[in-house]
Design a protein around this nucleic acid. Structure first.
Lengths: 201, 201, 201, 201
DNA sequence: AATGAATGAGTCTTCATTCAT
DNA sequence: TATGAATGAAGACTCATTCAT
């Protein structure tokens, strides 16, 4: 009789490790996130990291993916309550920057750092680029119905402006002490409203 | 007979080294910028770096300062030709992002990386924060005269929005392949126009 | 009711593991033959290796023994067809180096590697030395009847010369591109003939 | 005034390090020759190895080259005293295996180990193969004049046989306790004599 | 017997910094 | 000022071995 295969705990462990990376990286940067530090934060033996991940970079990539998933989850939760196209757009903006119980400063810090790491790690870059493009596409999709027919073609430009503002707000937020905490959410609404209104009669 | 004291070349050497860091860092990241690599790029012996700088971090800080100076120079050159408040604002926006002969991709890449390094290096952070605040103050100063008296208090909010968009545009630009090259300059003008117009009857 | 004790499959498993080592080692060296790689090649779980063997070195020793057994089998098959003392000697030489259906490049590679590993692993050394001595003794036994009485005492010297040539041929063969493939068998016959003839009137 | 460039000590250091590798490797194998062990044997700081060599493998390659040079030196010293073609051949054989003040057991052990390492390190293989081929060519060159015109074409086959015997003798010698110490030199002379005589009336 | 996760010592290598000259 | 060799403390990663199940 075949022995019952034990359920693999690899998924759970990978999650633990990715969380540990997020936590360590948020406070010490990717460089400060030595494998030893990650393992310690996860409460695991150092060698175990390379049992579940092929390299440190793979952990970083898994973190990037996870940030993408978490953002989408935050967005969908808010979008479910939205009653109009405008509210849906606001839901996406808020999913990125709103304070509140689901705000996650560590994730924002990691996201900013990922942008830098992506610059010279092709595999990271691929993932990060994809996530950027998905955000841009989603923004474009949400902006379009808010534009009068004659301005539909401006949707992607407006989306790019909004995405820029989001990413820049992350920078300012993460650095702290430059713009007040929580400035981003209202700023983005104003921005969206202004861009949508512009040119209308 | 006393030998004639050689004139110090320290300033020149420091400049060489900072330039080498910019160059190496732009293509290989701060991690890739080993002191040996910087020295090689500068055509100097490795040991010389620590004669002119106390540590690698000091070189990074000097680079940050230099980026600030260069930006200001680009701005002032453009501002000199500006004939109105609006053109002065556009001059500052363009100084950041416009393509052209004085565009400097390496500097943009380094600036983005500095944002990350600042997160966990207090001395770097101080400089970077100061530079951010100076930009914000300058933007506010330029936005104010473009607002009707009743909206003067909105100036710093609008400035923060513009600064966010600038920094975000850097991210998108640096990563490449997300928004088209050169999208930032017109986007920022539109943004500024929309924010200034909004609320005006 | 007592469960019927499963018949031990240890012998079968040990054989599987030793074969996997031969295969992995032939292509990746003893260093490349990590226990994980051996287990993978054998289609077994990593932990199982240490159930059937006390250590990695024990697997290596078992492989050495197996190479000795296989050589003897190849020799005996050929010796059975030999019709003269000379043909018996040729049978032994060919058992070592002849090309043909029972040639086994992996084994030759492993044998050469075993010679190196034996140098610093006493337990391996014991086995390898024993195998060398058995070959030398067998060669001496086969050479003796081919010598005239007055030269009987030269038999062990001639055997040593032949054994040297065999082992050296392995080296050259394994490295490839030095001597042509298949050069060893005729070379050894010539060598044997010359050594036996030398001094005969 | 240009400062006088200090003479580089890199060549000296490289020599030291290669010697340390030979020594450590001879007693502990290539695996046992950790960079730490090599550095310790050379009396140097661990980090210095990678200042003078790009990798551990480069040290191994330098050792291979050095073994080639040393062998040639031993040969040329003996060849200078040779008074005939036959004595020149004997000089080469003895340069490989003769006991005496210039015999160097460590080098023989390392040479045998290099044969194994070459199997799976392409850069090592290239060097080792070249050295083998040079030996084969030199042997052929020395054997030719000793053959009557009609047998000239056999020279390379005889050279291959002699090279095999040399390499095999190394194996037996290195392993010890199989053939008596010093058996190789007379054995090779006999072999050479027999191969040259064979077929002559 | 078997599994596969877990352990932790050990490997090669990199690098900021120091130092004798 | 300048050189380039030297130092030694990390760093990521590997791996034989162990262990709970």
């Amino acid at each position: 009789m075949e022995p019952m295969p034990r359920p693999s705990n690899t998924e759970h462990r990978r999650g633990q490790i990715v969380s540990a990376l997020r936590q360590v990286m948020a406070s010490g940067g990717y460089d400060g996130a030595s494998t030893a530090a990650i393992a310690a934060a996860a409460g695991l033996a150092p060698g175990l990291l390379h049992y579940h991940f092929g390299s440190k970079e793979e952990i970083l990539i898994a973190l990037a993916e996870e940030l993408g998933v978490a953002l989408r989850a935050r967005y969908e939760k808010r979008a479910a309550r939205a009653k109009s196209d405008w509210e849906r757009l606001v839901a996406l903006l808020d999913a990125h920057v709103a304070l509140g119980p689901d705000a996650d400063r560590d994730s924002v810090v990691c996201w900013v750092m990922l942008g830098t790491e992506a610059l010279r790690k092709p595999d990271v870059r691929n993932v990060v680029e994809r996530l950027y493009r998905e955000r841009l596409a989603e923004l474009t999709r949400l902006v379009e119905p808010l534009l009068s027919g004659s301005r539909r073609s401006e949707a992607s430009g407006i989306a790019a402006a909004l995405l820029s503002a989001i990413e820049g707000a992350y920078q300012l937020d993460v650095l702290g002490r430059i713009a007040p905490r929580g400035f981003a959410a209202p700023m983005l609404r104003t921005l969206a409203r202004a861009l949508l209104a512009e040119g209308e009669s």
